[in-house]
Design a binder for these strands. Structure first.
Length: 573
RNA sequence: GCGCUCGUAGCUCAGCUGGAUAGAGCACUAGACUACGAAUCUAGGGGUCGGGAGUUCGAAUCUUCCCGAGCGCGCCA
């Protein structure tokens, strides 16, 4: 049993006992009580805040309550001493065997150490990337892609049944523009001189190949036709071509989607009408006129009666339009149908990864999912901020108009997928991130991926030196402060996983790995300066064994952590 | 004008959902290779957590009002 769980269950027994004795009211709320590793080692091995949380509910002074609880905890198996500090912290010092049994648990669990079943096999759907199928993924897409995929891995590791999903926006005007752009390249492929790309069409050279492929497949049959005839087949061909590029880009990033959902199919299957009917039945729709936005009034604003969703009922600022003036559905409408579809497939637990530029879209999406599902927390939307591409500290100039943006593929070719996957998680997702693709290829502490990989490689190096490991070891021999610091960090790995998964914040895994690597490097160098701290000792076979198992455990946890992020560990650099 | 995301050391950022004296890296200063991989490590200085008020045993974290940055604001997706 995990040491934290051990104390939590012991504490629960104490609380139950107190309730029976009438010291605690039946209603006492213990949900905010935690047992944790204190930052400062002088505060003991495990610290608990129970006395401060319960003091008011129990009508006792925190320190008095702490004393009461401390005597009970003191009699628990494995506890050496219990101290009361500050406003009422209960600091527990445990017998070394508790730590060594934790270490044994790591070695027994192997790579799966840290995995847990907090998801209990429930389904969760993560929609991410969902870039418009009008070109290859550009560098900015990589962040949302990595965030979503790492979150997927994290939730799988926590016992969730994860669906990775990509929503293809193939029903709007942008794919018509794509088709027209490809048609131009198609004429070019058939020998026509097209000169400049007219404004409003996509200029990217990547469409030349698509035009050629279309000409090769269908010949010149579209040349004499009206747009009304060639638009549909060219559009389908173009979207397929773009999606195959995007799928390939994702695969190079190590991302494999389970489901690609098509907006066009939803619309054609009448899913939008169905979703609207449901909203209408539940009284969430009406026809009305919107006020123009205050302060910034568009010049061409005309009051217009339109079909609206009562988003204000669910906390949005204004009600949201569902139909364009020509009667066709807005993007929001098909997105409603899409989310209803996802709700029906998964029964809730939806996560969307959005770019920061979609921030204004969050409230209405949350509102409509609440309206459709009747639950407030069926959907979580993670906004992910911009990536500033840098080269040696200088921003890389990108002009979308000229079509010379930096693609994901470019970045993968220069730095590799592992580096991208890790670097994208070295910031909280709602913080902007500078990605310097010169610095991240350095082999130094400047490059966190390297730093973590190197720690793992060093572990492997020691284990190679040592040869076969002994089975019977006395792990209680591990007592040096630097060793204890490492053990405690290793033991906290399962908690990091749970908290990161609950918060939907995979960056915590990356930060933990950097912390772990640092602690291990530190222990390593301690052995250089103090030979008695070296892992391999000529004159003490038993202590050597114990230390080798510690190294083995460190390697396992690093491998486990990198595995959650879908980054391979390296045995040698 | 309104909304969203933010503001933490000179710079780049963490801070485990309210805990103890706010932590890392870079840069700067001074050190450690006859060595299990020095591609690393040790030590030091550096802070009104944007500002004010509030909530309570306790606030970087929660509430509110200012200041500043980025993003968004009917028939684009």
């Amino acid at each position: 049993m995990n040491i934290f769980n051990y104390f939590e269950s012991k504490f629960k027994e104490i609380v139950d006992e107190m309730r029976r004795a009438g010291v605690f009211p039946e209603t006492a709320d213990t949900s905010k009580i935690v047992f944790e590793l204190p930052r400062d080692p002088s505060h003991g091995d495990i610290a608990c805040n129970a006395a401060m949380i319960l003091a008011k509910q129990v009508k006792m002074k925190p320190r008095d309550l702490a004393r009461l609880l401390a005597t009970r905890l003191n009699s628990c198996d494995g506890v050496t001493t219990v101290e009361i500090a500050g406003p009422g912290f209960i600091n527990i010092i445990v017998e070394p065997r508790l730590w060594s049994s934790e270490l044994r648990a790591i070695l027994a669990a192997g790579k799966s150490y840290g995995s847990n079943n907090s998801g209990a096999g429930k389904s969760v759907n993560i929609e991410y990337v969902s870039a418009n199928p009008t070109g290859p993924l550009h560098a900015a897409h990589a962040r949302g892609a990595v965030l979503g995929d790492a979150l997927a891995g994290l939730l799988e590791f926590s016992g969730w049944n994860v669906t990775r999903e990509y929503y293809i926006n193939d029903a709007g005007g942008q794919v018509d523009t794509l088709a027209r752009s490809v048609y131009l390249r198609y004429r070019e492929a058939l020998g026509e001189n097209i000169s400049d790309i007219p404004p409003g069409l996509y200029p990217g050279a990547y469409l030349q190949e698509v035009g050629k492929a279309l000409a090769a497949r269908d010949g010149d049959c579209y040349l004499e036709q009206d747009e009304a005839k060639w638009l549909a087949p060219v559009r389908i061909f173009s979207i397929d071509a773009m999606m195959s590029i995007i799928r390939d880009d994702l695969l190079r990033l190590g991302i494999k989607m389970d489901v690609f959902s098509s907006e066009r199919l939803l619309v054609e299957d009448g899913k939008v009408q169905a979703a609207m009917a449901k909203l209408h039945k539940d009284g969430h729709l009406y026809r009305g006129v919107l006020e123009p936005p205050k302060g910034k009034e568009p010049e061409d604003w005309e009051p217009r009666e339109q079909l609206l969703f009562k988003a204000t009922t669910f906390g949005d600022e204004i009600d949201r339009p569902l139909q364009k003036s020509d009667g066709s559905w807005t993007y929001f409408s098909s997105d409603i149908a899409y989310h209803l579809d996802k709700l029906e497939r998964t029964g809730g637990n939806l996560i969307n990864i959005f770019g920061a530029d979609h921030g204004g879209y969050v409230k209405r999406m949350m509102a409509v999912v609440e309206a459709l599902s009747g639950q407030k927390d069926a959907l979580d939307i993670k906004l992910c901020q911009l990536v500033n591409l840098m080269e040696n500290g200088k921003p890389v100039k990108m002009s979308k108009r000229a079509g010379n943006f930096v693609t994901v593929r470019d970045v993968i070719d220069t730095v590799g997928a592992d580096v991208i996957r890790f670097i994208m998680l070295t910031r909280r997702s709602d913080q902007t991130l500078d990605f310097d693709y010169r610095k991240v290829t350095e082999q130094s502490r400047e490059n966190p991926v390297f730093y973590v990989q190197y720690a793992h490689a060093r572990c492997c190096s020691v284990l190679r030196q040592a040869g076969a490991l002994q089975d019977e070891v006395c792990l209680e021999r591990l007592t040096a402060p630097a060793e204890m610091a490492l053990i405690k960090l290793l033991v906290s790995w399962p908690r990091i996983v749970v908290s990161a998964a609950n918060a939907h914040e995979p960056h915590r895994i990356a930060f933990y790995l950097m912390d772990l690597a640092s602690t291990f490097h530190s222990l390593w160098t301690a052995g250089r300066e103090n030979p008695t701290l070296r892992f391999i000792l000529d004159d003490d076979v038993d202590l050597t064994s114990a230390r080798l198992w510690l190294v083995k455990a460190t390697a396992l946890v690093i491998r486990s952590g990198l595995g959650v992020l879908a980054i391979p560990a390296k045995d040698e650099m």
